[in-house]
Nucleic acid binder design. Structure first.
Lengths: 354, 354
DNA sequence: TTGTACGCGTTATCAT
DNA sequence: ATGATAACGCGTACAA
């Protein structure tokens, strides 16, 4: 007659383990948490656990400890940048017994909020996200509520959150300087939204490199194609139709570089013979491209390690406040075959960095 | 003196919302779950919720309902096959308010078990995994315990679980038949482990295509390089050193195709002039390759939809048993430029499929 | 070291 | 439609 009767498939609980082992429930709990237990009891408990097929309920435990061992990961897509990051991070978190709760949001704002709400409801111990502007207030609430937020890739300024970024500006600077070094002066750039951190910084690196070489910024050579492959395709078309087309192009992400590559291929043009190309981000395709694409390689595994380190630090002692972490990683420039030297009178007079 | 005192940062609960709204706790619960509530109460509750910054605790809810709205996703890596699948699946699950708990396991067996244990402890509603043999017993337990298991990509036979697979054999057959159609007879194959489902089926497609064309299987042309890029590289080297080197090669996954491409590039050989190539899996790189790589394209989004469909079906009514689902999807062959026609006397006499 | 009993925040039951 | 109250399974003082 009792309620227990019908639920034949109810999972066995710590109570039943305790009963069968002939010990108190508290003893079982302490055994489960690796605390000392009289060895006679230990064997009883272990026997009971396997006999009953007991599996701990992490939810119930989380209600007590306020720790789900779960980290929220909010991302816009599983791009070739985010995928390896997810893999690295997942593996790293694993050693502390944690796993990722993953949420791919869509373009509209509300889906980001949905994701955050989901994570908060499920009491993730931490939230990891690439910086999406527009949710500052919500994130502030989250942090105030005790959920550490770690953002990577894109900075959101003025927020009390942790950051793991790369030095976008320095990397872009060096990439463009390489083009200058080998004699290019007509260097165009395909940028994404320069209102956001990465877009701004990467363009800034381009700008400073040109300025540093005594060149001016030609507005015709600066195209905002919104990180988009298709827009990069048509943007490149426009660039090449210029009276003075660029001899080299710097793409602020791999997506746009692919657009350029596609456009060139469709029109029978070749890299680097017809155009020199350097791109931010390094993807497998660049390695295998016929010429090899010279690119900025983000230290993805190091980013994951930094994030994991912050997670550990934040969760180690949650009640003592710690100043926001801010980690800036350096990128490598992988030199391959997508740039050609321009032997002009002009460049032969300028000093070159090897 | 009470315990409550110090935890200043305790989250507000449904109880406090009820108090502030001047209604019973049950009423708030019903409001939260979309059940009818007297409209006067509704506004009180809504006011209280925003005033108090209340956030529902999905953990506590899950303890009662036995539903976490969480789906475990266990995978070996974030490869170019798994990444888009994760993205599609994540987006699909989202519309039902579910999210993915993701776990990348490593090579050793135990890490797969760790992942399963984690998922079970966290009471995922479903487990999605690519078929990893060696854990049959554990999976059987899981299913018996009421957790639906859905496996994709690789079949594990003889288990009462759901499956979403592609017709590997048919796809390989058609891919290799294409090579035969354009006149190749010396066709080699780079396979992975032929003990597992995908490896066996893909090889079988190759075999049947050759046999169907009246050709024999030359063991020199069949190399198990364990799905590995590097082993494919050296395997291809061996193949080309044969007295009668193959004129075409079929790679059973994209990884091995990349190894072949790398080897050819390093040795100044070109596709399709020196070797025709067809690969299983379609990755961005193949699209952009100078020649374009002809490939078998798995319907990744459809796979995600099928998985999501099964999740919904299983969770819709959990107590009524349903026979294991088994969904087989067809692949497309994307014809690009990596194969060349062989005009031999022999092939001119055979009928060709266009 | 062990046993007891309470609380975590929610849903479900049952009267009202 | 609402209010009161008993679970859900675990961790943890506290007393022994």
């Amino acid at each position: 007659m009792s309620i227990e009767e019908d639920s034949a498939n109810r999972r066995t609980t710590i109570v039943e383990v305790a009963e069968r082992a002939g010990v108190a429930i508290g003893t079982v709990s302490r055994y489960l948490n690796g605390q000392p237990v009289r060895s006679a009891n230990r064997v009883q408990i272990e026997e009971a656990i396997v006999a009953l097929g007991y599996r701990r309920n992490a939810l119930a435990a989380a209600m007590k400890t306020d720790l789900t061992n779960t980290v929220g990961f909010l991302l816009p897509s599983m791009s070739e940048f985010h995928s390896p990051l997810l893999e690295s991070l997942s593996r790293l978190l694993r050693v502390q017994g944690r796993a990722l709760l993953t949420y791919c949001h869509t373009a509209d704002e509300s889906s980001v909020l949905e994701g955050i709400d989901f994570f908060e409801a499920h009491r993730v111990d931490c939230l990891v996200m690439n910086g999406q502007a527009g949710n500052e207030q919500r994130l502030r609430e989250l942090v105030a509520g005790g959920v550490p937020v770690i953002c990577y890739d894109n900075d959101i300024q003025g927020l009390p959150i942790d950051r793991v970024l790369v030095d976008n500006r320095a990397a872009s600077f060096r990439a463009v300087r390489h083009l200058l070094d080998i004699g290019h002066t007509r260097i165009a750039v395909l940028t994404g939204d320069t209102q956001v951190y990465t877009g701004r910084e990467r363009f800034e690196g381009y700008r400073q490199a040109l300025l540093g070489a005594g060149l001016e910024i030609d507005p015709h050579y600066v195209l905002d194609v919104h990180w988009s492959e298709d827009e990069a395709y048509s943007g490149m078309l426009k660039l090449l139709a210029l009276p003075q087309p660029p001899t080299a192009i710097f793409c602020c992400n791999y997506n746009m570089a692919i657009g350029v590559l596609r456009m060139l291929k469709d029109h029978g043009l070749r890299v680097p013979d017809d155009l020199s190309l350097v791109s931010f981000d390094d993807v497998p395709l660049f390695r295998l491209h016929e010429a090899g694409i010279t690119a900025v390689s983000q230290p993805i595994h190091k980013i994951a390690e930094a994030i994991n380190g912050i997670v550990n630090a934040r969760l180690a002692d949650r009640n003592t406040a710690q100043a926001p972490h801010r980690i800036i990683l350096e990128c490598d420039i992988i030199l391959r075959g997508s740039t050609r030297r321009m032997f002009t009178a002009e460049n032969l007079t300028r000093p070159q960095t090897p």
